[in-house]
């Protein structure tokens, strides 16, 4: 789960880079950059859940 979460973080970043390269208008770019940030936040949420499970097991 933690590996998938880290991959999601990187995917979000590459989505942002792709938006800069492939899109032209500020509106479209902003939409895709926000989407990329959303993917990154999803990755962070998944990572948090993974570490919560680890903490639970340690207890």
């Amino acid at each position: 789960m933690k590996l998938v979460a880290c991959l999601l973080l990187l995917s979000g970043f590459f989505l942002v880079l792709a938006a800069l390269v492939l899109l032209a208008s500020t509106g479209q770019r902003t939409a895709f950059v926000v989407a990329g940030l959303g993917v990154e936040i999803l990755g962070l949420a998944l990572l948090t859940q993974g570490y919560q499970s680890t903490t639970k097991e340690q207890r």
Binding site: C6, G12, L37, E40
Partner: peptide, 27 residues
């Protein structure tokens, strides 16, 4: 530059921090 462009640039920077710097430091 317009306000929208500056907000976009700042969001790109935040994305680089979350999506590249954090995985790098965590790894």
């Amino acid at each position: 530059g317009s306000r929208g462009e500056h907000v976009l640039a700042q969001l790109v920077g935040v994305s680089a921090l979350l999506g590249f710097v954090f995985p790098l430091v965590h790894a």
